[in-house]
Design a protein around this nucleic acid. Structure first.
Lengths: 244, 244
DNA sequence: CTCAAAATTTGACCATCGTCAATTAACCCG
DNA sequence: CGGGTTAATTGACGATGGTCAAATTTTGAG
């Protein structure tokens, strides 16, 4: 039998700290118990596939811990890493709403826990609690904004700019600040995946990384990155157009 | 007093042919009347701004006729044309859901009619008819898919490829087929806007267009485009990887 | 620990793209 | 219709990015 809930043993979702921060927060205590009883929590190994593009949607996933890569192909072998999902994020709501097959794949980047909520349960809860629907609307609207911002950056920035932006974004999630103000992190992605996130070849990314090191903006060693002066990176993508 | 409804005089929204095809189709006759009484229909001239990024959202817009450009800036003067909206499309729902200011601008490309529905009315209807919320969810989910596809294309295709794709998409909306199978259309956009849609400079677009003409794939004259063999254009973006 | 496979880096080379500048064409207001 | 402004094209050139190939490093299975 699958473990239930997100946190301490018997409490189920009620004890899940994530509940405060995602759409399920509007559920009553009883509704939360329904959710608890009907979800399947599962641990994924690094690299394991959670679901794949093209297969039917049976429900949604909620990231509990770890990080998940959202990949989408163009039908010709080329696959792009669209975004990363983190604890509190909900995946695969599109199938729930449109009843279509999955349009992208989800893969655990490292060891990750996800909760699966079947369609029937979600629909039941959506019917019982209209606020839940509103929460989903907000979630999607926010995702939409993010996608639009992404589109604008892609149209505006050079590959180097896009990568710098990506680095800063990853740093926000994965970085730690040292006592001297410099920041460092362990990259959750291979170079190939980093390259696919900015729509460039991995060879190109290698060179971009090389140039960033030459320019003294960052130091790369395997998956470890040190950014000495985060400010300098910011300047890269926010050029001194007007006085800032 | 603003005109009401979308079609023949007294019928209001009930007579609006668009209603069949957008989210409002789930409203009852009485709810539709409420909608009719509370919307403001307005004609916009070519180039006229419907709303601008940064200003507060007071409601949503429904495109009745014409075409609308959705523009989004990156905060540094660079503005990108994200997409075009056509009759039946709903604009600006994000503000309704998140209560935030507009994140993009909307501008009439040619003479266009739009209906404005105030927040309070939309919320009233959303409360009365829960199916309406579901419709909005579907709408946004579909928009989301489109945005993701856009992201994948941007990461995958060259500028030429992106432009060919754009041409074919515009052809679907604006094109007519001649007796010999060739297609032609009047472009709804300036070269600059076309360029910004594919994230390229207008000089680059000029050269892409030049090369497409050299290659005999299309003929451009002002805003008129002739595509002799639509198949050849398709081949551009769907290379003969495997046997098709 | 060892070895093979996969990932990453590097080089060479060419195509594409952006920038600056100059020209030409199209458009709008009066 | 004219004049001025904006849009579009073209050229030159440097910068960036993609492709192919080879070398090097890292990773993972056994």
């Amino acid at each position: 039998m699958a473990e239930q809930g997100g946190g301490m043993s018997g409490l189920g979702c009620l004890g899940c700290s994530l509940r405060q921060r995602n759409e399920w927060c509007v559920l009553s205590e009883e509704e939360t118990r329904i959710l608890s009883r009907n979800l399947k929590k599962r641990q994924y190994r690094a690299g394991e596939t959670i679901f794949s593009a093209g297969e039917p949607s049976h429900g949604i996933y909620c990231v509990v811990s770890g990080a998940v890569a959202i990949r989408k192909g163009d039908g010709e072998g080329n696959a792009v890493l669209l975004r990363l999902a983190y604890p509190g994020d909900t995946l695969g709501y599109r199938g729930l709403l449109l009843g279509e097959n999955r349009r992208y794949s989800a893969e655990a980047l490292g060891p990750s826990k996800l909760c699966f909520v079947d369609q029937t349960v979600t629909r039941l809860l959506l019917d019982r609690n209209s606020a839940l629907g509103r929460q989903f609307l907000r979630r999607i609207a926010a995702d939409m904004d993010e996608a639009h911002d992404h589109l604008v950056r892609n149209a505006t920035l050079s590959n180097r700019g896009k990568f710098v932006y990506l680095l800063l974004a990853l740093m926000n999630r994965h970085g730690r600040t040292a006592s001297d103000g410099s920041r460092f992190m362990e990259l959750p992605l291979s170079r190939r995946d980093l390259a696919s996130m900015i729509g460039a070849r991995h060879e190109t990314l290698s060179r971009i990384i090389g140039r960033l090191e030459e320019d003294g903006l960052a130091r790369f060693s395997g998956r470890t990155v040190h950014v000495i002066q985060p400010h300098s990176l910011f300047r890269e993508i926010r050029p001194p157009t007007l006085l800032d």
